[in-house]
């Protein structure tokens, strides 16, 4: 950390190059890609919400290729067991005929994990992933097994098919750094997708980062960015505006919100804002950076009350009102 300018430039270049690689495979999802990368460099997990077929798996796979990290995909189903995710102890016999337990790692031990349709698994299985996401290790048979570093979970859920699903509990939702909505591509984007996927030429993904250590260095750069107290006040103000019982609450929150965002939301705001500041070529965070991260960082942390659900109020609308204040 001798020269901040050099490191900031490295970070910016790395970020841009990864983004460029992702754009080779994902068409018309620039904002989504940027947000996924922000969460990745901030060390957070991402919940992707979108209908099937929009390239979520492709996104995660491409990201893993670009940053040269291991990738695993878990398709969540109702009969999926926790051991299917975290792994299990197997009885193995060595050459001498001696039997012993050996831990067989599950897919969660990859650096980047795609938890596809996470809401289809039972809460028991979901909670197994919950521990891995927060604690960065899994415990099997009383033994804790640390996960790889970096570790990123990208979970997806389908907003349309709600039958036979187990909605994620609030505690688990709070573990996600961002909740991103995957929008349907536009007509021109669809043309581009068709052109790229129906020909013999497949885009080649270059490895931007060579090893995880480089990744850790860039993450460290992010945390060095200073935030003035007056600017940080903006994050606090936004968070309190979603709490119906505080004086800072916006009218919509007072009427339709049961619980506001958690302190993890404010952490996510600041971390994301630091990355946005670096991407903007600044060494300090501005309030605009915080505002930019607000929707993705807070939308899944606000719990609507019954009236809010009945009225069809979205958390995005509440955040927009808080931002407009």
């Amino acid at each position: 950390m001798n020269d901040p300018k050099v490191h900031a430039t490295q970070f910016r270049d790395g970020f841009r190059r990864i983004h460029t690689e992702l754009e080779k495979m994902m068409v018309g999802q620039g904002t989504l890609l940027e947000s996924v990368l922000v969460a990745f460099f901030a060390g957070g997990h991402v919940l992707l919400e979108g209908v099937p077929g929009l390239g979520k798996t492709m996104l995660v796979r491409t990201l893993a290729d670009a940053v040269n990290l291991s990738f695993a995909r878990i398709q969540f189903t109702p009969d999926l067991m926790p051991a299917d995710i975290i792994g299990t102890n197997l009885i193995v016999e060595d050459e001498t005929g001696r039997k012993s337990f050996r831990f067989q790692r599950g897919p969660v031990f990859a650096n980047i994990v795609l938890a596809d349709e996470i809401n289809r698994a039972t809460p028991k299985t979901q909670s197994a992933l919950l521990e891995a996401m927060q604690e960065r290790h899994v415990t099997v048979g009383g033994t804790a097994h640390p996960l790889g570093e970096p570790f990123l979970v990208l979970a997806t859920q389908n907003p349309l098919e709600m039958e036979g699903t187990y909605p994620l509990p609030e505690a688990q939702l709070d573990r996600f750094f961002f909740k991103l909505k995957v929008e349907f591509p536009s007509a021109s984007d669809l043309h581009t997708i068709l052109d790229r996927t129906t020909t013999s030429e497949q885009p080649q993904i270059s490895r931007v980062l060579q090893d995880p250590a480089e990744m850790r260095l860039l993450r460290e750069v992010v945390r060095q960015v200073p935030v003035a107290r007056e600017v940080q006040q903006r994050a606090v103000q936004l968070l309190l505006a979603t709490h119906p019982d505080t004086e800072a609450a916006v009218p919509l929150a007072k009427r339709f919100v049961r619980y506001g965002g958690s302190p993890r939301g404010a952490q996510a705001l600041i971390l994301a804002a630091k990355i946005y500041a670096l991407l903007d070529g600044r060494f300090h965070v501005a309030q605009a950076d915080i505002d930019k991260a607000a929707t993705a960082a807070l939308r899944h942390r606000i719990i609507l009350n019954f009236e809010g659900e009945a009225e069809g109020v979205t958390t995005d609308r509440i955040i927009a009102e808080a931002l407009a204040r």
Partner: peptide, 8 residues
């Protein structure tokens, strides 16, 4: 002030 703060 750290290096980043000074740069800022």
């Amino acid at each position: 002030r750290g290096p980043f703060a000074a740069a800022a």
